[in-house]
């Protein structure tokens, strides 16, 4: 049995919350941070000896840059925690993929 009858007109929900501008201060701050981190990447690339610690530093810097892009530019910091959890928690599966495939890659090396 349908809940909508002929007399009731179905209205689609087109809910768009009103957002106030927070100004441009945070944007310039994030730009500065991202530029500095990229500059650090470039400096380390030329002056740091080749080893696994260097690679670790590059990956950490990449994750920090990703944090600033998602939190500030994509506004995730200002969203409800429920939304952030729905999007970010499933990404933990990627850790499993990394562990599994790098283990496999190491195994291929030993063949």
């Amino acid at each position: 049995m349908s809940h909508t009858t002929d007399t009731e007109e179905y209205e689609p929900i087109s809910y768009v919350p009103h957002v106030e501008s927070n100004g441009t201060k945070e944007i310039w701050r994030t730009l500065t941070i991202l530029s500095l981190l990229t500059a650090v990447d470039i400096i380390l690339y030329f002056y740091m000896p080749l080893n696994s610690f260097r690679n670790f530093v590059f990956i950490v810097l990449g994750i920090v840059k990703a944090y600033y892009i998602v939190a500030s530019f994509m506004h995730m910091k200002h969203e409800k925690i429920d939304l952030a959890a729905v999007i970010l928690v499933p990404l933990l599966f990627v850790l499993g993929l990394i562990a599994g495939l790098l283990y496999e890659g190491n195994f291929w090396l030993s063949i």
Binding site: S14, V16, P17, E79, L83, I87, V94, L97
Partner: peptide, 28 residues
């Protein structure tokens, strides 16, 4: 909206999550 965002924006986030999985697979 339980997430206090519009339907379209929520779905864009869900799409980006799936796209993140695609790129993770390629990079890993």
């Amino acid at each position: 909206s339980p997430f206090n965002v519009s339907y379209g924006k929520l779905m864009m986030w869900i799409f980006l999550l799936s796209d993140a999985f695609t790129f993770s697979s390629l990079l890993v």
